[in-house]
Design a protein around this nucleic acid. Sequence first.
DNA 1: TTACAAATGTGATAAACCCTCATATTATGT
DNA 2: ACATAATATGAGGGTTTATCACATTTGTAA
Lengths: 209, 209
Amino acid sequence: MGNEIAGELQMPAARRWPTQSRSRERVERILAAASALIAEAGSDAMRMSDLAERAEVSIGSLYQYFPDRSAVIRTLAERYNAQGRECIEEGLAGVSDIPGLKKAFSELVDTYYGMFLAEPVMRDIWSGTQADKLLRDIDLADSRANGALLAEVLTRLRPDADPGELAHSAFLVMHLGEATMRLAISVDRAEGDALVEAYKRMALREFEG
Amino acid sequence: MGNEIAGELQMPAARRWPTQSRSRERVERILAAASALIAEAGSDAMRMSDLAERAEVSIGSLYQYFPDRSAVIRTLAERYNAQGRECIEEGLAGVSDIPGLKKAFSELVDTYYGMFLAEPVMRDIWSGTQADKLLRDIDLADSRANGALLAEVLTRLRPDADPGELAHSAFLVMHLGEATMRLAISVDRAEGDALVEAYKRMALREFEG
DNA sequence: TTACAAATGTGATAAACCCTCATATTATGT
DNA sequence: ACATAATATGAGGGTTTATCACATTTGTAA
């Protein structure tokens, strides 16, 4: 099925599904080139002509696999999100009480923050360059998915609390976490660190009930 | 001084300062037209040609007062921010204890949320369409200014706490408030309301120390 | 191997848009 | 009324995205 291939490649916005191996390599070349260009000058500055040249592919080929310019960026964003979600899933696995959750969450925030600081592409894509609605939708879906992971743990650890309220709280905590990261990487390092610490305090209190 | 005129008109990005009254009216016509167009189809869809036609002005005239397309949007954003800041300043005036602060803040959040829900232009501009860095800078400066207002009250009410930490906390609370609004208007109304409530709980706890 | 069909690759070019600038019009001061 | 400064105009230059008719490569069966 084409969909499984799509899942493997994480190409929700693709136009033509690559069935031959040569075209899969091609798609990877395009994405690698996009990554490099974004790291160098930001996603705004990425031109389709540059991308074609860097990937050693014609412009027409770009549009074989991506319906438009922003789809390339969205695909990268989703890859990074998937990577982050794995991180969260691992971090929350095996948590069995509230103090454990606090510790795990605190470490997750640090890990995430480190990823934001280290990955120029992630920095760029999530630092507010959300020109199109589809990219915002991806952001929202990401918060939702991460929030669901957290909510699951919370409802398990606090069976007496209202699950609906916990779900909203978890969703918000995750979304504001992303917002905090974006803020933190927009200011100087010292202030960014302090803001991340302040966020952690706020979020951890939320787990106490 | 041209700067005073600039201050009155809130046109930080203007190219030529309007000295004749006719051109001031013109600028207002342009901004009103921009507002209408954005309310109708979003800022992404606002074309300079449409704007010129709607404002009954030539394209060249647009560039007499705005250096580029995004400057028009930024000017509107700054006007809305100024309006919001006045709101906050009023709301926090006369607060004399922590319970009072909690009540005032809670009401401010409701007011702000109401503004976001009611104003299509504000919705659009702040709902994530931050394609260019300058608009993000405006967002950041806004959070900072609002945070400073809150920090002032907090340091007054809690003289024993570390002022630096309070400042970071206030900045973060204000910034995450904006993030919450953006999130709330992106989901359905019931969920949005619940998320705003969750944010209020989180923020209010932060004031307790 | 050869031939044929399906899949994939190419780049000139259409279409859309932002912004400039030479020129025309209007306002202000004498 | 005249001169000069301020403002208004819109055709066109320049840039970028995306298309599509045609060329090339791959897979397959005789």
